[in-house]
């Protein structure tokens, strides 16, 4: 079984973001970029499926500018066999990303497609579900455990208040949650080897998908600053303030 794993280049999760002075977007100039943390978990899961003999090949795919090849190289260093880069400088919304991935799925025919549940830039949590809808597949979102059994996959999902397990017919789409696994670090020899692994570059036009969006971002602002900084001297004062000033406890 082939596993397709989608990765996204995003701002590093440790970086404090700045909104541009003209409020058009977040300023990404000279900012450290990295693979989206949930995508790292997706790559790790795909590689583990291969190590367990469940997957025969792991193909990494990304959609983004030329620089996004860095993240594909990371995926290759972590154990993906080859990669597909859908290259575009345009901003790609979830629905368009799902349409592009659907075309890649049509070409590659993976048994499983694994994505992060959301990217930490737009925080949409949409692409996996949309891909599953477009491909007519079942979806195992927010996965914390994945077990392939014959022509089905059993997915334990992190839901509000607990866990839910579903069984999906293959091929299927899975999106990863935090507890699924702990991603490894790439070793230097693997990073060197990854440089020789193939990356197939395609453009949205080649896939017959127009990069368009019905959403327009009118402005991006910093959230209201909190007026913090008040100190209390004792537990008594704290309890009193919470009761009588903030009125959040009875």
């Amino acid at each position: 079984m082939k596993v397709l794993v989608a990765v996204k280049r995003v701002i590093d999760y440790n970086v404090k973001i700045r909104v541009k002075p003209d409020h058009s977007d977040v300023d990404l100039t000279n900012v450290k970029m990295a693979m989206n943390p949930f995508c790292e978990i997706a790559v790790e899961e795909a590689v583990r499926l291969k190590e367990r003999g469940v997957a025969s090949e792991v193909v990494a795919v990304t959609i983004g500018p030329k620089a996004a090849q860095e993240q594909l190289r990371t995926a290759l260093a972590l154990g993906a066999d080859r990669a597909i880069h859908v290259e575009t400088d345009d901003k790609v919304e979830s629905l368009t990303a799902a349409k592009l991935l659907k075309r890649v799925v049509d070409d590659e025919q993976p048994g499983l497609t694994i994505l992060g549940k959301q990217s930490i830039d737009t925080d949409n949590n949409q692409t996996g579900q949309m891909l599953a809808a477009l491909a007519g597949m079942g979806q195992g979102t927010f996965a914390s455990e994945v077990q392939v059994e014959g022509d089905r996959v059993q997915v334990t999902r992190e839901i509000d208040g607990g866990l839910q397990t579903v069984s999906l017919k293959l091929p299927a789409v899975i999106t990863t949650d935090l507890r699924l696994n702990e991603p490894r670090y790439a070793k230097l020899p693997d990073i060197m080897k990854a440089k020789k692994k193939p990356i197939d570059v395609k453009h949205p036009d080649d896939l017959g998908v127009a990069v368009a969006s019905s959403l327009s971002v009118l402005k991006v602002e910093s959230p209201a600053e909190r007026q913090g900084g008040t100190k209390v001297a004792s537990v008594d004062e704290l309890v009193d303030k919470l009761k009588n000033e903030a009125k959040v406890i009875a």
Partner: peptide, 23 residues
């Protein structure tokens, strides 16, 4: 925007070929 809503609504949007807005 619960795990239930986030699971289902993007799938609805894609079936209708429209964007979804989260949270």
């Amino acid at each position: 925007a619960s795990t239930q809503g986030k699971n289902v609504m993007p799938r609805v949007a894609a079936l209708k070929d429209v964007a979804a807005l989260s949270e």
